[in-house]
Amino acid sequence: MIAALGFGIIASVLMLAAIRVVSSPDLVRSVLWLALVLVMTAVLFLTLSAPFLAGIQLLLYTGGVITLMLFGVMLTSRQAGVEIRNEIGAISPAVLFSTILFGIMGGAIYRSSDALPRPAFASAPAPDTEALGRAFLTEHMLSFELLSVLLLAAMIGAIVLARRRDFGAPEPAPPSERTARADEETRS
């Protein structure tokens, strides 16, 4: 009963915050609502007996991605706080499409709910962090290492893409020094 109540609270906060993320005209607020969505997802992970994932979610998303997104919003607005308004385009076809999509998915979930184990989360012991670590370092070792290569490639790609074109070129001498040197050369 209490678990159902808690899940209801988490789910309603999640849905409200998600709707605010896509409907807020101010992108900075949108990013902050997304932070709320991610924190509530971490809480949901805690209730699903995945504490390690909840910690990773908080560290990686709320710590890293939200900060990065805020920097992105502020770097790509022409003057800070002026042009981060976001035009929301054609509305009604998008509402129709996502409602139909939700109807299809919800219908499929409802129809297959008999096939799902009815007393869920009771039959098997939940996987703990130790099992997760073992799975990472034995069975999924190759994917784990490939993931680190992917992260390295993304890091290098971001640096190469976002650097200025004249990065690393020899700096031109400051004009005062240059004119002084030219004066010396003409004098000699």
């Binding site: 159902a4 499409f97 996502s98 939700f102 919800g106 799902l116």
Partner: peptide
């Protein structure tokens, strides 16, 4: 709190994301 409820919640979040993807014009 059964599995279907969580799946429904995730489907709802996904559809809200699809809506945002279709309506936003700002790349961020």
């Amino acid at each position: 709190m059964n599995l279907s409820a969580i799946l429904l919640l995730a489907a709802g979040l996904f559809c809200v994301g699809v809506y945002g993807l279709l309506t936003r014009r700002n790349a961020i």
